[in-house]
Design a protein around this nucleic acid. Sequence first.
DNA 1: TTGTGACAACGACAATTGTAGGAGTGAATT
DNA 2: AATTCACTCCTACAATTGTCGTTGTCACAA
Lengths: 126, 126
Amino acid sequence: MGKKKLRAMSPTETEILRLVWELNEATVQQIRDQLPSDRSLAYNTVQTLLCRLEQKGYLKHHLKGRAHVFSALVKPREVIKTTVRDFLGRLFGGDPKPLVQFLAEDGKLDEEDIKRLRELIKKKKK
Amino acid sequence: MGKKKLRAMSPTETEILRLVWELNEATVQQIRDQLPSDRSLAYNTVQTLLCRLEQKGYLKHHLKGRAHVFSALVKPREVIKTTVRDFLGRLFGGDPKPLVQFLAEDGKLDEEDIKRLRELIKKKKK
DNA sequence: TTGTGACAACGACAATTGTAGGAGTGAATT
DNA sequence: AATTCACTCCTACAATTGTCGTTGTCACAA
């Protein structure tokens, strides 16, 4: 497997990559429209971010008419893995439990979620 | 409540702040020694980071002999809240479930952890 | 044909970040 | 006293990041 070493992504780049995943493929404009309402970036800014992501190897693009249509070269899974690991390292010294506990206490997880987790883990165990 | 707006922390700064929490209070040298073995920073680098954290309002220090002893001005809780929220926003569009699911699938959480979570949530619910 | 509106290409730029060097100073050591 | 620690202070600096402006080009409308 091509375990290519990707250059690190900046926070904002991450944000953009996620939107590309969400849309599957997208032009600058489409990404821009996909931004959450409380987050506004100039067309050019989005363009720059997409270019940088492409240079770093996270995206590719093809032409459709005159527009660049970007799509991901990396799967969420891979990126999430390293990004989460990294995040966990910095803020929790690598231990995921406090993070999950925080999420629970903060009311972001309910019993339903936990139940699903249980099953997931049980299945995985064998 | 003093909802002071703290300037954003960089990743490495976050890393350092965590060590301060871990040690409760610490000198430059102590922080340096506390770094994980695969992470080495020059004395001066650590010093710079601590200073910046202080300027940004996350730390204070007092003198003990000629050494600066740093300690946190912010509780983990507060920082974690905004940092996690931010992280979730960028990588998961704000939804914590995929994150937790990833952690579970990745084998970072076991049944024991889940059980504790359940109880936590149950207690919290009332 | 002359705008007008979309888009891309290129460049720019201040701020932040990661990383540290070197000078200075007081205390302990030889 | 001279050396050596152990620290702080001040300074630096390249790279990265966040954020665009300007300019050029094409297609379509008036």
